[in-house]
């Protein structure tokens, strides 16, 4: 393998990890609803979202392991990395919150994910393109779910409206990170392998803005916060999530399940 090829593979590995970690961590948060949802119908719906994202995470982490060439499996990557090695967005690791919080986060993230995946499905890297094509369909379904609930909560009762506003105020400042190109990935973009997320920002704002307007909500006027989840600098929430997720697996290092 030439040095250039090795460098590309390693960058692609980081890229797949970042996308995979988003799915893994958000799936974890959504799965915390199973059995606790506002209605039994919603227990089923939220579990579906969690399952879709978990499926995407497994595909992306497995692929990252292959690109890395070290033989690390999806489980090695999920269970044996520490907080600083996770590459997910700060947005997805925020606690589960109330249902308005979950719906708002889903709207913000799924819209981003659908747009990103649509672009990525054109990638010259066939495996990533395949995962993205399937993921885009799932993400569009997740958007639909989020949009239905955004309308009903935003334009529901005074309480539900207020809860949606609060969630938006808190989560909006964490969205800027979604559209930043992680270091070292410009090369991937110019090679047609990865997507520059800043390209979908405008469309994302348009679509999210429309959904919010339908729901008598609006984009909050709050500044973006500086987030560096893609670099491994997370909020304190991630450590607790990982402690819970990884504890059993790590307690039996030589076991298979």
């Amino acid at each position: 393998m030439t040095d250039a090829l090795a460098a590309t593979r390693s960058r692609l590995c980081d890229y797949a990890l970042a996308l995979g970690d988003d799915c893994l961590i958000l799936s974890h948060r959504l799965s915390e609803w199973t059995g606790n949802a506002p209605d039994f119908e919603e227990d089923v719906a939220l579990s579906n979202l969690a399952l879709d994202l978990l499926g995407q995470a497994r595909g992306l982490l497995t692929h990252a392991g292959e690109l890395e060439g070290s033989g690390r499996s999806e489980d090695d990557l999920a269970y044996w990395r520490d907080d600083l090695q996770f590459r997910n967005l700060i947005l997805v690791e925020q606690p589960k919150g109330d249902f308005a919080w979950t719906v708002t986060r889903n709207l913000l993230f799924s819209t981003y994910q659908e747009l990103l995946y649509q672009e990525l499905s054109q990638s010259a890297e066939p495996i990533l393109a395949g995962i993205a094509a399937k993921g885009a369909l799932e993400a569009s379904y997740h958007c639909e779910h989020a949009a239905l609930w955004t309308a009903r909560l935003g334009d529901g009762t005074a309480e539900s409206h207020q809860r949606m506003e609060q969630a938006l105020m808190a989560l909006w400042p964490l969205t800027g990170e979604m559209f930043e190109l992680a270091p070292g990935q410009a090369e991937l973009v110019s090679a047609g392998l990865a997507v520059d997320p800043s390209l979908v920002l405008e469309q994302w704002q348009l679509r999210v803005g429309e959904k919010l307007q339908d729901a008598t909500l609006s984009i909050p006027r709050v500044p973006q916060r500086r987030c560096q989840g893609r670099l491994g600098f997370h909020s304190e929430h991630l450590g607790h999530l990982l402690a819970e997720m990884q504890h059993l697996h790590r307690s039996h290092p030589d076991a298979s399940w």
């Binding site: 209605d39 119908e41 919603e42 089923v44 719906a45 579906n48 639909e144 779910h145 239905l148 009903r152």
Partner: peptide, 20 residues
């Protein structure tokens, strides 16, 4: 059957529940 506030939610829920 299932419960939902309106038909749109009903169809959405039905997809998750009866066509998993």
């Amino acid at each position: 059957s299932l419960h939902a506030a309106d038909w749109e939610m009903a169809v959405q829920n039905a997809r998750d529940l009866y066509t998993r």
